[in-house]
């Protein structure tokens, strides 16, 4: 049985998508998300902001996978959550099919949510331990009033089958499943309402190596058959590069480079991207022996008080005086290759 044969709504969706192959599904403009730091017990006074996301601009095309990669604390997860309006943006626009999600409220926003879903990192924390697998996967159907009674149960069983789980598991609880199986349950829940766009927030980082490949392949198959668009957030550059059509590299609340995944490896321009690429180990002792590593000095500065000028200048091996004063612009250097650096 193929996934295609099992999925009802898929053929219609694929047709609809065939028309606008290169159309932009999501357009993010100068998105900012600050979290206030407060002081005081009775009267809370704002003393500073954590600038988790500080002005990012990018778009995601229909049917593609955009990878968002960066180290812990760079703001990649916050970006994903702010796009889905799980956090409301401090500033900027999130245009989903031309509609600004940041302006939507209440019922209107709730309606949009059936088009945008999320897969979470931790398959242990993201499933309610007191609900059965059937109830977990059925919940979005209930919320959005899709299918009832027997039909709903059938849909849930079908979803379990699609993600490679036995449909008889419907009455079991999450603790009876392994990490990889739980992640499959989370994926079934996210595709239940036939979304167009899914934010995958580190969906495989909590899993063992041999299980990771199973989930990556499942996500790729689902994309192919359901015409999904992914924003794939992860810290593992090899995985991001494998699954993504284009990759955005984040550092301290900003995207420093964005290009297609082949060019990112063949022709990285930003010094941070270069350091990041050189730090990723390659499972081949002969290649590892010959590789030159760019070892970055020190740690990532605090997002409360990011460095003036270019945010990477404190650790950059190519730093020049202007980097310490003026923030570089986000510019296109050709063929949709974007970079934010004075030296390039």
């Amino acid at each position: 049985m193929t996934i295609e044969a099992q999925t009802r709504a898929a053929p219609a969706k694929l047709e609809q998508k065939a028309g606008g192959d290169n159309s932009i599904l999501l357009d993010v403009r100068n998105l900012k998300k600050y979290f206030p730091i407060t002081q005081g017990i009775l009267v809370q006074k704002k003393v500073a902001d954590v600038k988790a996301v500080d002005g990012v601009t990018f778009h995601v095309k229909q049917g593609e996978t955009l990878g968002l990669v960066g180290e812990s604390g760079c703001g990649k997860s916050t970006t994903g959550r702010t796009i889905l309006q799980l956090y409301r943006p401090t500033e900027g626009q999130v245009l989903f099919r031309g509609k600004d999600l940041a302006q939507l409220k209440g019922e209107e926003l709730r309606q949009m949510r059936s088009d945008m879903q999320m897969i979470f990192q931790d398959p242990y924390a993201s499933l309610n331990p007191r609900m059965t697998v059937g109830d977990i996967v059925a919940e979005p159907l209930e919320v959005h009033n899709i299918a009832k009674g027997k039909e709903r149960k059938e849909r849930v069983q079908e979803l379990l089958r699609i993600v490679g789980l036995n449909p008889y598991f419907i009455n079991r609880y999450p603790h009876e499943f392994s990490g990889g199986q739980r992640q499959r349950i989370g994926i079934a829940r996210s595709i239940a309402v036939n979304p167009d766009f899914i934010v995958c927030d580190e969906p495989i980082s909590a899993l063992d190596v041999s299980i990771q490949a199973q989930i990556i392949n499942l996500l790729e198959e689902l994309q192919e058959h359901l015409g999904l668009t992914y924003l794939f957030i992860a810290h593992d550059l090899s995985v991001v590069r494998h699954i993504s059509d284009r990759v955005a590299v984040m550092y301290l609340g900003k995207i420093v480079e964005l290009t297609d995944s082949r060019a990112l490896y063949a022709n990285p321009l930003h010094p941070y991207t270069r350091a990041l690429l050189s730090a990723v180990p390659i499972p081949d002792p002969i290649i590892e022996e010959k590789r030159e590593r760019i070892i970055l000095v020190g740690d990532v500065p605090s997002p409360v008080n990011p460095p003036k000028g270019c945010r990477f200048h404190t650790r950059c091996p190519l730093v020049i005086p202007i980097c310490k004063e003026v923030a570089p612009e986000w510019r296109d250097v050709g063929n949709g290759h974007f970079v934010e650096c004075h030296v390039v």
Binding site: V239, R241, Y265
Partner: peptide
Amino acid sequence: IPRLDDNQKEKLTP
């Protein structure tokens, strides 16, 4: 495991 230096966008073998 996907390799960083892998230019083939082929399926992994889990």
